[in-house]
Design a protein around this nucleic acid. Structure first.
Length: 972
RNA sequence: GCCCGAUUAGCUCAGCGGUAGAGCGCCUGCCUUACAAGCAGGAUGUCGCUGGUUCGAAACCGGCAUCGGGCACCA
């Protein structure tokens, strides 16, 4: 006992880890100081910096790296809460857990922000130059990244900050270059001129995924195209309908459906394109819907994806009439130099002037918008780099069909369909961006071969660096070769797509320094982190980036991690137990075993929170008001239906949230429960008190230990299967209802009394239950639980709850029949309190109370717990006769027990009303049960145990009805 | 057009074959020596509509309605 007191005060003597509770014993929990203190302590101790050679089954998560575009919003806090709950739980399971943090350079988003800033300063990025721009971008990254990291720390994220990565840091650049080279060597990267989505706002190509279709109110212009005249032909023109009249300047054909009787005979004839005068052919193409518009389509292969395809099928020329800044070019003739929307007006006006505008109809249609630029994208012919996706997607589909189980496994499962569908009709991925902020494409053009300029035909070499490029170029093109590196950068998602392995050290030193992929004699030493933690255990992310990110990661992993990793003997720790992994390397190349997809955080009006909508909530505001633990608990608790969006209530006037406040109240409840324990454990700790001795346990001891055992099994199951919200609710109920409302109240007489032995038993049970609860809650409320755990256990400051083991209560404590026996006590107490309230007895007034039951076991229970029950119900004396004494006010617990008060019956009406209500309810139940039993089909077909239960319930209900009826009769 | 989700107490949501739950809010009473951020007691629902399966449906199946989301997209 004494030694434990010493260890408790020992913790208090270490200032940086002193439990809040040891000092002034405030009545309310103040999260701010506690949270900061433990965050610092964890980090200083390197608590979350795992060793790849350490024992324990590896468990790893790479966090979705937030964009360095400013600060974090509630969605990030949600994602963080979920991931940290999972990894902290797994750490408590004794696994070798790595949670790797980082941020994403967000090429186009950051460049857009910076260009806006520069523009506001009256300059543009070209004045600045590429190097200065880069410097500025890095400064921005430092600032925004710092803010983000600060926010993640404030949430208590148990990530390994020593392994923090940034998608544009040198190590990841090496991975990006290597990935590009290997894909190129595999024939999976090509360069060519295709119609791409051009964003005039950012001056870059974007991928299909970065285009968002928006419904807009536009117009459908019907234009008259005169046929080049032919003798005897009655039709002298066609009418085409278009939403983009300006593109007619680039028309190189008109298409009709081959089976359209109106026009079939005109196929092959030519048209004189108005305003331009070009002769263009009429072609027949299945794509044309005869029922839409006039059934004639103008074909502009250089400015529309469908027209591009038609043009390809019919060999039509591609005439680009638009420049990359969204203005018409010289090919637009007299319309050249106009902004595209001006050009539209000008063309329509000109057509009208020539009497060729048949009509203009209002027309609602979808227009492709650039996600980032927020302007309509322009389909434009452009030479870009592409990844050939089908072979990569095919591998992913095969993995998903793995007969041993889908890889990855989606939770909830329905998202695997979304993932598969996208991989099934996938288009090639345009990966080049005409931006500066990003990974420069590792390709050098041999410009000497094409007269010093870069064209589509310019040959190139891909290389790890300039020296290698020169070597390759000279070998291929001779010493006179002139090189120029491609000025473009790669799509951000190209580097994000490598995240689960690039952050773990892929491709490793030997390979990177080696002569090239597949070269002989190469003996790549797989990085230890990769060997231990790849594939990662689970990816936790929102459904909105399944295509952008999840699928890109699986596709790229398929290109690089197919080969089994070499066996890595555990040299640093030869005695370590064998890993649960196949000898010879990883069991899958898919970068994560599970993909846990969560919903979005919506605002109080059920709108998606987003920066652009301006309805985001700064997590820091709520953390400051309620604490990080409260915010985390609130977010996780809301997520019981996995994959469902969550709605966070929020009052923008006062920056308050009832949901988070409820979680804060729970934190305070735990704080006070622990405070109560500290005040009543007499300076002892769970360890110094020792195990509860079965023979000494009282009723509530056995009950709470059984509940604890049950809860610990259930909570582990829930956490382990990503049912985090359910775990949160379960523990909330155990803590508040079972431990605080029941156990502590029943145990108080012993804790406050002088019976040393009884007090010790109660202390043992209380200490053990509370400690186990704190461990179980740790994944959800890490700071509070860490703090309280230190206070309760007196653990050294250098020890952490975060690194303890999940509670292993003795299974022998599980006792369902005792749980229901004790439930009688709870129910009896409630019945008495109800009766007191009903009869208007003052809470402070003590009065004689009876519990009446003919059952011996229950009588024994009442006798054994007389003092406790008396205290709980405010009894001056407690009777336990089998039958009620005359003149008492009676309440029904169940058919086998009644409770009674001896008071002047001043509230008979209230009691009568209550009994009548009870009776009505019971009779309704009887009618239902009797009806069911009367149905011969039920008795014949329902399982016998259900029938028996039904009969038992009916008997119970009838007995209760009789009791209630009798009481009503007495009341008159 | 194709696919997915949701619809349960005033609000936010669990429950997903045995006859309805939680938190918040609400009503009543309590500063009971851990906690008023608390305690005790209480009220509150034709589980969207409609067929079907079943002895039995909030739950399973079909249709419908409303809301939300994704994909595709005809000029």
């Amino acid at each position: 006992m004494d030694s434990s007191v010493a260890s408790s005060s020992g913790a208090a003597a270490t200032p940086e880890a002193a439990g809040t509770l040891d000092a002034a014993l405030p009545k309310t929990y103040d999260p701010a100081g506690t949270e900061a203190r433990w965050q610092a302590a964890w980090e200083q101790a390197g608590a979350f910096h795992p060793d790849p050679a350490a024992p324990g089954e590896p468990f790893s998560v790479v966090i979705p790296p937030p964009n360095v575009t400013g600060s974090l919003h509630m969605g990030h806090a949600f994602n963080t809460a979920l991931i940290d709950t999972i990894v902290r739980f797994q750490r408590l399971q004794g696994k070798n857990v790595l949670c790797l943090p980082g941020t994403d350079h967000a090429s186009i988003a950051v460049q857009t922000i910076l260009e806006k800033q520069i523009k506001a300063e009256g300059a543009n990025k070209d004045d600045l130059g590429r190097d200065a721009f880069f410097e500025r971008a890095w400064a921005w990254k430092a600032q925004s990244g710092g803010t983000i990291v600060g926010q993640l720390r404030r949430l208590g994220y148990s990530v390994d900050w020593k392994r923090e990565r940034f998608t544009l840091d040198p190590g990841l650049n090496k991975a990006v270059v290597e990935a590009f080279l290997r894909l190129h060597a595999q024939g999976l990267i090509y360069r060519g001129e295709y119609l791409v989505n051009w964003c005039p706002a950012s001056g870059s190509a974007v991928s299909d995924l970065e285009v968002e279709m928006k419904e807009v109110e536009g117009s459908l212009w019907h234009l008259r195209y005169p046929l080049t005249p032919v003798e005897g032909e009655p039709i002298d023109h066609l009418v085409v309908a278009t939403t983009r009249p300006e593109t007619m300047l680039g028309d190189t054909g008109v298409a009709v459906n081959p089976s359209d009787p109106r026009y079939a005979h005109l196929v092959g004839r030519s048209i004189t394109l108005p305003l331009v005068g070009r002769q263009i052919p009429i072609v027949a193409d299945e794509h044309v819907d005869p029922a839409f518009g006039t059934g004639c389509v103008k074909v502009t292969p250089a400015h529309d994806p469908n027209d591009f395809a038609i043009g390809q099928r019919h060999g039509l020329p591609q005439i680009t009439v638009m420049a990359k800044d969204g203005t018409t070019n010289e090919a637009a003739g007299r319309f050249a130099g106009l902004d595209r929307f001006e050009a539209r007006k000008a063309v329509v006006a000109a057509m009208e002037a020539e009497g060729l505008l048949v009509k203009t109809e209002p027309h609602r249609h979808s227009v492709p918008y650039s996600d980032r630029g927020k302007v309509p994208v322009e389909p434009l012919l452009s030479t870009q780099w592409f990844v050939r996706t089908e072979p990569l997607a095919a591998r992913c589909r095969t993995a998903l069909d793995n007969p041993a189980g889908p890889e990855p496994r989606f939770v909830p499962e329905r998202w695997s369909k979304v993932y598969r569908d996208w991989l099934t009709d996938i288009r090639d991925w345009c990966i080049s961006r005409q931006l500066w902020w990003g990974h420069r494409i590792p390709a050098w053009f041999v410009v000497s071969e094409t007269g010093g300029v870069i064209t589509e035909a310019t040959p190139y070499v891909v290389a790890r660096d300039e020296a290698e490029a020169w070597a390759k170029a000279e070998a291929q093109f001779g010493a006179g070769a002139q090189l120029e590196q491609d000025p473009d950068v790669l799509d951000t998602w190209f580097s994000s797509g490598l995240w689960p392995f690039s952050t773990l050290g892929w491709p490793g030193e030997a390979t990177a320094a080696g002569p090239g992929p597949g070269a002989a004699g190469e003996a790549p030493q797989e990085p230890a982190d990769l060997a231990t933690w790849y594939p990662t255990s689970v990816l936790v992310t929102g459904f909105d980036i399944i295509f952008f990110w999840v699928a890109r990661m699986t596709m790229l992993a398929g290109a690089f991690l197919q080969e089994p990793a070499p066996d890595q003997p555990d040299s640093a720790n030869p005695d370590a137990p064998a890993r649960e992994r196949p000898v010879g390397g990883r069991d899958s190349w898919i970068p994560f075993r599970d993909v846990y997809i969560h919903g979005l955080v919506r605002d109080e009006n059920n709108r998606k929170m987003s920066k652009s909508a301006g309805n985001g909530i700064d997590p820091l505001l709520l953390i400051e008001r309620y604490g990080a633990d409260a915010l985390r608990f609130a977010l996780v608790r809301e997520v019981a239906g996995a994959g469902q969006d969550i709605r966070l209530d929020y009052d923008r006037q006062t920056d308050t949230s009832a949901t988070v406040e409820a979680a804060r109240n729970f934190a305070n409840k735990l704080f006070n429960a622990t405070r109560f324990a500290l005040m009543n454990l007499g300076g002892e700790t769970p360890a110094s008190l020792g195990e509860p001795v079965p023979a000494e346990l009282e009723s509530e001891d056995r009950w709470i230990l059984s509940r604890l055992t049950r809860t610990s099994t259930q909570a582990a199951e829930l956490y382990g299967s990503y049912r985090l919200g359910e775990a949160a609710k379960l523990l909330y109920e155990f803590a508040w209802n079972d431990l605080c409302d029941q156990y502590i109240e029943w145990a108080k007489p012993r804790l406050f009394g002088d019976d040393e032995a009884a007090r010790t038993t109660a202390r043992r049970v209380l200490a053990r239950s509370l400690e186990a609860l704190l461990v179980m809650l740790h994944p959800l409320m890490p700071h509070l639980s860490e703090d309280l755990w230190h206070a309760v256990t007196g653990a050294e400051a250098s020890e952490f709850l975060a690194l303890q083991r999940w509670p292993q209560p003795d299974p022998a404590w599980l006792d369902a029949s005792h749980e229901s026996a004790f439930q009688f006590g709870i129910d009896a107490v409630r019945s008495i309190r109800n009766l007191r309230a009903l009869s208007g007895v003052k809470p402070a007034e003590k009065l004689p109370i009876g519990i009446h039951t003919p059952t011996a076991a229950r009588q024994d229970f009442v006798i054994a717990n007389q003092g406790k029950i008396s205290r709980l119900v405010g009894a001056s004396e407690l009777h336990w006769e089998a039958e009620p004494t005359a003149g008492q006010l009676l309440g029904i617990v169940d058919s086998d027990a009644q409770v009674g008060l001896t008071v002047p019956p001043q509230s008979l009406d209230a009691l009568r009303e209550r009994l009548q209500k009870d009776l009505a309810k019971i009779e309704k139940e009887i009618a239902g049960l009797a009806g069911r039993l009367a149905n011969p089909n039920f008795a014949g077909k329902a399982p016998p145990e259900v029938v028996a239960e039904c009969q038992a319930n009916l008997a119970e209900a009838r007995a209760q009805a009789e009791l209630v009826g009798g009481r009503l009769g007495e009341l008159g």
